[in-house]
């Protein structure tokens, strides 16, 4: 993926992204660029379109209009037949790891099998290679001893760290985090956030939808505040949290902090 020549395009490039559910316009023409290794945190009231924006990136939601590119490659191509577009999507999705609020681990597979499933089935890695990578990742998220457990035996925080390892096993260029700590007991949030901070330090490009303002302040390179399907204000965490310009931002931060 990475070349030695100078990059001329951002890692993620979103232009004029609109998404409607029936008559409801959830995203009203979003323009957003994310640079390589940038950690972008999306905040905003519920219903503001943060999750929908994230899900449009890997086409779990079909954008109504607009252009999305990752690493210079257009995601929502319109020049392909239905079959070819599905194949294109399957390939593009391997470049974007996604972690969900409700983990979505595969309950019929062990922790190790959860992680090796896609590398073996999609990337055609050998079982041994996939297993080696999976064990390294499990060590990294501190769950090596759980590799043969089924997800039902894990706590929420452990499940979410396995989900992160599962996404990382595809060696994605970008990681998308969709409110990954919202379903966790408060005492389990810290372990998950630590794994994400490590990832950010290692230079992973990340888009994080979260209500963890402490995490946003510590880890984000840029904070984007969304309201009513649009970007209301963006800037460095210092600027957004200490000196918000927009009234909507001031009110939201006043409510959550």
């Amino acid at each position: 993926m990475k070349t030695t020549e100078e990059k001329t395009h951002p890692m993620i490039d979103i232009r004029g992204l609109r998404k409607c559910f029936g008559a409801l316009e959830v995203l009203k023409g979003i323009d957003l660029q994310v640079a390589e290794s940038e950690v972008l945190v999306l905040i905003g009231p519920s219903g503001s379109g943060k999750s929908t924006l994230l899900r449009c990136l890997n086409h779990l939601e079909t954008p109504t209009s607009g252009e999305i590119s990752i690493n210079g490659e257009r995601v929502n191509r319109t020049d392909l037949s239905a079959r070819a577009f599905q194949r294109h999507l399957n390939r593009v999705r391997t470049h974007m790891g996604m972690v969900f609020q409700h983990f979505n681990l595969f309950p019929h597979k062990t922790v190790l099998e959860n992680i090796t499933e896609a590398p073996v089935q999609v990337l055609r890695q050998t079982r041994e290679d996939a297993r080696r990578t999976a064990l390294e990742l499990l060590e990294r998220v501190g769950l090596l001893d759980k590799c043969d457990e089924y997800p039902a035996r894990l706590s929420g925080g452990q499940k979410q760290r396995v989900a992160i390892a599962r996404a990382l096993a595809m060696q994605p260029s970008v990681m998308l985090f969709d409110e990954v700590t919202s379903a966790l007991d408060p005492e389990l949030v810290g372990d998950v956030l630590r794994v994400m901070e490590d990832l950010a330090r290692d230079g992973m490009t990340m888009i994080v939808v979260t209500h963890e303002m402490g995490f946003a302040q510590r880890v984000a390179d840029r904070v984007v505040f969304m309201a009513d399907g649009d970007i209301c204000e963006q800037g460095t965490p210092e600027r957004i949290f200490n000196d918000p310009q927009q009234e909507r931002t001031q009110k939201f931060l006043g409510d959550v902090l």
């Binding site: 390939r91 969900f100 595969f106």
Partner: peptide, 24 residues
Amino acid sequence: GQVEAARSLGMSAALTMRRIVLPQ
């Protein structure tokens, strides 16, 4: 969410059905 997780990992619809949905 099971289907979404599988598809987000690049698994095709058929592979998702065979490996993730049908066994469950």
